[in-house]
Computed example of a mutant assay.
Amino acid sequence: MSGASDSQIVFDAIHTQKKQQHLVRMMSETALEVHKIPNHNVKFESCVICKSSNVLFHVNKFGFNLDRCCDCGHIFCNPMPNSSQLNFYYNSPMKDFENEFFIESFEKRVPIFKKRIEIIKSFVPKGKLLDVGSAIGIFISALQREEYGFEVHCCDPSDGACRLLKEKYPEITIHQMMVEQLKADCGFDVVTMWDTLEHVESPVDVAMSIKKLLTPGGYWFFSTPNTDSFEWKVAGVDHVQLLPPGHINLFNLQSIKRVLLDADLELVEYFTPNGTLDVSYVKKLLQNGTPEYIKNAGNFFYQHIEDDSFLAAFAKLLTDTKYAGNIVVVARKRLVEDKG
């Protein structure tokens, strides 16, 4: 997989200044309205993914409690917002605000999807593809710019998103519904779901629905925030992706494996591309001089110092950037000495 475009994928390009300046205010205002809607959902006594009872309070964000499973590491809203609250949120000015910064950063986000298309084509060069949660169609635009052999379908419950998709991509089949409502005999060779799984109430149910939509041997490609990553270890409970009631399930590899196991899907491979996003975000955090972030950065390296593959990559980084502890110098006498 090529990394040629990775230098373009940095935090401030993907997350516009408008988003960074107004996100907390917009989320806070929207959450206040969401909390006015009664929620009688019962608090979970065990992890929503692995069912372990070893669950502890993690953080409160925008009035929502998030718990963390001590066994699989999954972070989830507890209790979950109910369907009325979620429906209000996804039809609130917050979603219009989100679409605005997606549009503003559209071209900066396309390289992210170009990398993902390379991954898809390495497994499935052509066939019938369903994109779930297409939103304003950044992935679809990236697909159209590449040489691809897919019959493309989009699935999104949003009236506004589907209207936009129909106007911009009239040749693509649009399904305005939840993915669980699609007929199971559609027979897709590929289902894609980009940064959507963290929004759903029941990840296992969604995974099982996707399995029914796939042809035998078909592939599900998806992305979601990785809480077991460099940027999450440094940012901790201040991470910008802790955004309930939008993000209500936050994953790591272990909890993803459990979802796939419960849905009887096979994990074939996984990637963590776009490391420049992590580096640029952590750099932004460390520039504030916050002692906790500095400590967390040090802890990240301490926790991985016994990992041979990590050490090999880090050793190569030190060599490439000329920060290794031994210096080899090549000097030469000038052909003409300076007489001055």
Rank of each mutant, 00 (worst) to 15 (best):
D6A: 12
D6C: 07
S7D: 09
D12A: 12
I14N: 04
H22Q: 12
K36M: 06
P38M: 14
N39K: 09
H40P: 00
V42C: 02
K43Q: 05
C47Y: 06
I49W: 06
K51Y: 13
H58E: 07
N60W: 02
K61L: 00
F62E: 09
G63Q: 04
N65T: 12
L66M: 12
C69M: 04
F76R: 07
N78I: 00
N78R: 00
N82G: 00
Q85C: 04
N87V: 01
P93A: 12
M94G: 00
D96P: 00
E98A: 15
E100I: 14
E100A: 13
E104P: 02
F106N: 03
K108F: 11
R109E: 14
V110A: 09
I112A: 02
F113Q: 05
I117M: 10
I117N: 04
P125V: 14
K126H: 12
K128C: 01
L130E: 08
D131Q: 10
G133Q: 09
S141K: 15
L143S: 10
Q144K: 14
Q144A: 14
R145Q: 08
R145V: 02
E147I: 13
G149V: 03
G149L: 04
F150T: 12
V152E: 01
H153Y: 12
C155R: 01
S158M: 08
S158Y: 07
D159S: 11
K166S: 09
K166W: 03
K168M: 14
Y169H: 06
E171W: 09
H175P: 00
F188D: 15
D189W: 03
T192V: 07
D195A: 13
L197F: 10
H199P: 12
E201Y: 05
S202A: 12
P203A: 07
V206I: 15
L213D: 11
T215G: 04
G218Y: 03
T224A: 14
T224I: 09
T227W: 07
T227N: 05
D228S: 11
D228R: 06
W232V: 03
V234L: 03
D238P: 01
Q241T: 04
L242S: 08
L243Q: 01
P245I: 06
P245E: 10
G246K: 06
I248P: 06
I248Q: 02
N249M: 00
N249Y: 02
N249F: 01
N249E: 01
F251W: 15
Q254Y: 07
S255I: 05
S255T: 10
K257W: 03
R258Y: 06
D264H: 15
L265G: 07
L265P: 03
L265D: 07
E266W: 02
V268M: 15
Y270Q: 06
F271H: 13
F271A: 06
N274G: 07
G275Y: 08
S280D: 05
S280W: 03
S280N: 03
V282E: 01
L285Q: 05
L286Y: 01
L286F: 02
L286H: 02
T290D: 15
E292M: 03
E292C: 00
Y293N: 04
Y293D: 01
F300L: 06
Y302T: 10
Y302K: 13
D307R: 01
F314T: 03
F314C: 00
L317V: 04
A324P: 08
I327Q: 08
V328P: 02
V328G: 05
V329M: 08
A331Q: 09
V336F: 08
E337L: 10
D338V: 08
K339L: 11
G340A: 14
